[in-house]
Each structure stands twice: as structure tokens, then as C-alpha cells.
């Protein structure tokens, strides 16, 4: 009875997982490597910047030889492409300051992505990077911005994507939520990742919370650690977040099943624990010394014990 109810939910979750990511490589990597379509929001704040993640998207798309259009509104081109490898720089197309202060109607940008897709070969899907959405939101009414993004997505080919940077500390949370409802995936940047062993790296790994829109049920929220190397490639540090064990060494097998089970014993014991268990004298062995205590059972009562019950 219960199993047939849970089964679809689990199946849906595993389907979603297979679509988004191979089991080893994590959601973020799958998204960066072309798994995302539609609007991807990169939500950063003053404390943790998200532009490097945008550069990772650009590098990965160039590696797949897809056309990439970068719309720069926050920073000049030089600071965006600092550190990127020359062949990546060469392949990126730019729109700097598309919407300069006497603002034209943003709707006419709708066909931009489509034009970009039409110029390239019909195969690869175009990618548009928007740095940043906050610039637009601070200057235009949110419904207009939403309409413009929807127009960008509509103008693009099937499977096209818009990766937009959003400085979420600049906007009210309700606006961030409303934009999140439009997005297919959101990447919320967090602080530095807790690492088991401090790695001496130029770019310490950081945390990102990946929120994806479920197709049919299933969990959609996952915290992952990542690094972006200066040349714009995405690195996933090998020891991920699975270090929240009980202070022991690294467990040989990952814990099976998501939820912590309510059993009060462990099936896997270490050698020391096994020895400790063997050293304990079981209670019935103490008992064996005092044998011969006679136990005579009570004589069977012939009275009905429930006689006084007036049923």
C-alpha cells in the first residue's frame, strides 16, 4: 500500500536527477555544462560575488563551440574577461551598455538572442549572459524586466538559455522570489565551503545552493561546493560536504538513503568496537551461577477472574 505511493515520487526524483546530472558530477557542473535551459539566476551578494560563475558558464559554452553573447551593464569588458584564456575571449560576443540611461523600450531587444542563434549553425543552442539583472531592475519597473527576459527566451531557439546575475541584497526579497518563480534554476552563492583538510589554493572552494524547478515531484535543493579557476573553468573540490559524520575517519561507503534512520544501533562496527562488544559479559551468563532456584508455577485457579464483571 505504502510502497506504490512512494514509488512515483522516488522515480520522479531519480528521473530528474538523471536529466540534470550524472551521479558523480553534481548539479552545478551539469548546469554549467549545458544542462540548463531557460532562465538561470545566479544570486550573489556583496559578500560573495557570482561573476566568476558567469565566466564559468561562458567558458563552458565556448568549449562546446556554442555562440555566447555577453550583455555587460555592471562592469567594463576588461574586468569581465580578465584571466580568461585568449581563445575564449576571442569567441565571446559583447553588448556593452545596451541600455544607456535615456532608456529605450526594452522590448525591442527581444529578438537579440534569436538573431544570435540564426547567425550561428543551427545545431548548438545559444547562451546569453546578463551582467547584471540588478542594473535593469534598479532602472525599470520589474514587470518590464520580466517581459524583456521572457522575450529574450522566446526569441531564442529551443534549449537556449539566459544566465542572469542578480545582486539579491539590492532588492526586496519578494522581488527575488518573483524572479525565482520565472527561473528554471537558481544558484544562490554562499560563503566558503567547510573543508576537511584546508587546501592551499589560490581560489578556495565556496558553497552554492542549487535550486531547480521540479518536473514532477522530487527534491530540488542541494548545497554543493565549487571553485572557479582564474581561467574560467569550473572545478569541483573532491571532498564535498559529506564531512558531517560523527568525527570519525572517512566512511568507506557513503550513507545509503537520504533521511537518518531511526534505529538505535549501527550495523557496521569498527574493529575496536567489535572487540569491546566481545569483552562484555552478557547478562544471562551471570545468571548461570545461581542455578537450582525452584520455581513452581501458581496452581491454576478454577475461579473465573472476570466473574465480578457484570457484562
Amino acid at each position: 500500500m505504502g510502497s506504490d505511493v512512494i514509488a512515483p515520487r522516488m522515480r520522479a526524483a531519480s528521473e530528474g536527477g538523471a536529466k540534470m546530472a550524472a551521479p558523480r558530477s553534481g548539479l552545478l557542473q551539469a548546469l554549467v555544462e549545458g544542462g540548463a535551459s531557460g532562465l538561470v539566476l545566479v544570486r550573489d551578494s556583496a559578500a560573495c560575488e557570482g561573476r566568476s560563475l558567469l565566466r564559468a558558464f561562458a567558458t563552458a559554452a565556448v568549449k562546446r563551440s556554442e555562440p555566447v553573447l555577453v550583455v555587460l551593464l555592471d562592469v567594463p569588458r576588461e574586468s569581465f574577461e580578465a584571466g580568461l584564456s585568449p581563445d575564449v575571449k576571442q569567441r565571446l560576443q559583447y553588448q556593452d551598455r545596451l541600455w544607456t540611461p535615456p532608456l529605450p523600450c526594452p522590448m525591442d531587444v527581444g529578438g537579440l538572442l534569436g538573431a544570435l542563434g540564426g547567425r550561428g549553425s543551427p545545431g548548438p543552442s545559444p547562451t546569453l549572459l546578463l551582467d547584471s539583472l540588478s542594473w535593469l531592475l534598479l532602472r525599470m519597473r520589474p514587470p518590464h524586466v520580466g517581459g524583456a527576459i521572457a522575450g529574450l527566451l522566446r526569441g531564442g531557439t529551443e534549449g537556449g538559455r539566459v544566465v542572469a546575475l542578480l545582486h539579491e541584497d539590492l532588492h526586496p526579497p519578494s522581488l527575488v522570489r518573483a524572479l525565482g518563480a520565472m527561473a528554471t534554476a537558481q544558484l544562490v552563492l554562499g560563503g566558503p565551503a567547510p573543508m576537511a583538510t584546508p587546501l592551499s589554493q589560490a581560489t578556495p572552494p565556496r558553497l552554492v545552493r542549487v535550486l531547480t524547478r521540479p518536473r514532477r515531484g522530487g527534491g530540488t535543493q542541494k548545497d554543493e561546493a565549487f571553485t572557479v579557476h582564474p581561467n574560467g573553468t569550473l572545478g569541483v573540490p573532491p571532498p564535498l560536504l559529506a564531512t558531517e559524520g560523527e568525527g570519525g575517519g572517512p566512511s568507506p561507503t557513503p550513507p545509503s538513503g537520504g533521511a537518518p534512520s531511526p534505529i538505535t544501533f549501527r550495523l557496521r562496527l569498527s574493529g575496536a568496537e567489535r572487540a569491546a562488544r566481545a569483552a562484555v559479559t552478557p547478562p544471562y551468563e551471570h545468571r548461570s551461577s545461581m542455578q537450582g532456584v525452584p520455581i513452581d508455577p501458581d496452581p491454576p485457579e478454577d475461579e473465573d477472574p472476570d466473574e465480578d464483571l457484570d457484562v
Binding site: R141, P142, P143, H144, V145, G146, G147, A150, P172, S174, L175, R177, A178, L179, A181, M182
Partner: peptide, 16 residues
């Protein structure tokens, strides 16, 4: 009532 309908009741506590 969503953003795409051009309405801002979803994104602000005091919409215009």
C-alpha cells in the same frame, strides 16, 4: 498576476 502579465503585485509589498 505574475510578472509576465505586467503586474507588480508579486514583487512588492506596496505595488504601484
Amino acid at each position: 498576476g505574475s510578472l509576465l502579465w505586467g503586474d507588480d503585485i508579486c514583487c512588492s509589498d506596496t505595488p504601484e
